[in-house]
Nucleic acid binder design. Structure first.
Lengths: 222, 222
DNA sequence: TACTGTGAAACGGTTCACAGCC
DNA sequence: GGCTGTGAACCGTTTCACAGTA
């Protein structure tokens, strides 16, 4: 029941292409919609069509982690959801913190989508005296100086950074020092972190630039 | 001075790997930080180190669009910024709209980072009667029914979708019908659009899931 | 000397095509 | 018949190594 079934041993989860993992999230999202719509099983080609990828891709991706399909039938949605959540680790609960309670931070604190996937934002931090001590959607906002203490106390594993670019690296260093395991960075800078801390960067301006490029060069982009 | 210098003709911008374009945004971001810090020139290896990629990669990426480097010297930051902006199309002004003025939409309307890269949010839309007719950061919020009209009137080219998942496809269809050229979708659904409209999807939960996976599987992810 | 630009090799991910199974 | 799982072919991207240039 472990995530290393790929053929003859030797292929731990770390050898799985990053692209596969990000598609796993999309499969999960789509499957949840399908179940909500009453679907019970789905074939790789149907699922592929919904996501704009090939059926072979869907099957290859999934077999990296085990054999979840039923020949002649397809994949049972509920079963596959359970498997993918186990693979992603979102069958467990994750405690998350948010550093930076400006516009974006506040919006994300109010966002309902995280909780349903197992992510619980349990504390937020900022430096502005007028927000420290308040709480947003029931999430307490602490001063940055209490970061290590609160992270340890709640056993927080993941952090989101929504501070201005200039402060992001310093905040990241604090999070790392406090023992955080992974970071999602929304500040428009490249962070440098020790190897053992996972990092994903999301830059909203960058996304718009990608679109601008395709449009400016009239690429149909897909 | 056109973006198709790659060797012997034949290699339009559409043949450029997507990965290259997204790194272009990162180069630009880093160069802007460098210039702000007083740098004048930078070598491919220095720039690569800042972004965690190889020097060869930096050079290969850039030569897809022309020859911007100076052997023995490196790249002149200001010059390269100009070139990349021209390539991305962000030397022009882009008019952008935002559909959905909930928490996330409001936060993005207030975000200052877009304007400096050439993106001007000129109108927003929602269905909630209590926000329609108001304005946020000087950006007027219209009813969805006026979407086509306002988009045509302002010559809006790009759209951002920040409505709930269930409404996203319908909103996308409206935007397409109104003649929009590209969409950034923040709703957690896969949209299906005609080929001629560019699409980028940003799903915040998905990003957390990527981190959860790396942490759960103790991948150093990089 | 210090650096870019670029063919060629190496790598990794995607697609194909089919054996096996229900 | 319909569908999965998978080796092998294919294709695009990254890295290497070096010729060329200021």
């Amino acid at each position: 029941m472990n995530a290393r079934k790929c053929k003859n041993e030797t292929l731990g989860p770390c050898d799985v292409p990053k692209a596969v993992v990000s598609r796993l999230s999309l499969y999960l999202r789509e499957l949840q919609h399908l179940v909500a719509a009453g679907a019970v099983t789905i074939s790789s080609s149907q699922l592929g069509k919904l996501l704009g990828i090939t059926d072979a891709q869907v099957r290859k991706d999934l077999t990296c982690f085990g054999q979840f399909g039923h020949p002649g039938v397809g994949y049972r949605c509920a079963e596959l959801i359970t498997e993918i959540r186990r693979i992603l680790g979102t069958d467990r609960r994750w405690s998350v913190t948010m550093v930076g309670v400006g516009n974006l931070g506040r919006a994300l604190l109010r966002y309902k989508g995280f909780a349903s996937q197992g992510f619980r934002i349990v504390a937020a931090f900022d430096v502005a005296p007028d927000v420290v001590g308040t709480s947003i959607e029931g999430i307490p906002v602490h001063g940055l100086d209490r970061l290590a203490e609160v992270i340890a106390q709640h056993g927080i594993q993941l952090g989101m950074i929504t501070v201005p670019a200039g402060a992001a690296q310093a905040v990241a260093d604090l999070l790392v020092a406090a023992g955080i395991a992974g970071i999602v960075n929304f500040a428009p800078v490249t962070l440098s972190l020790p190897q053992h801390v996972s990092l994903v960067g999301v830059d909203l301006t960058t996304e718009l630039e990608q679109i601008a490029f395709s449009v400016a060069n009239r690429c149909t982009s897909r």
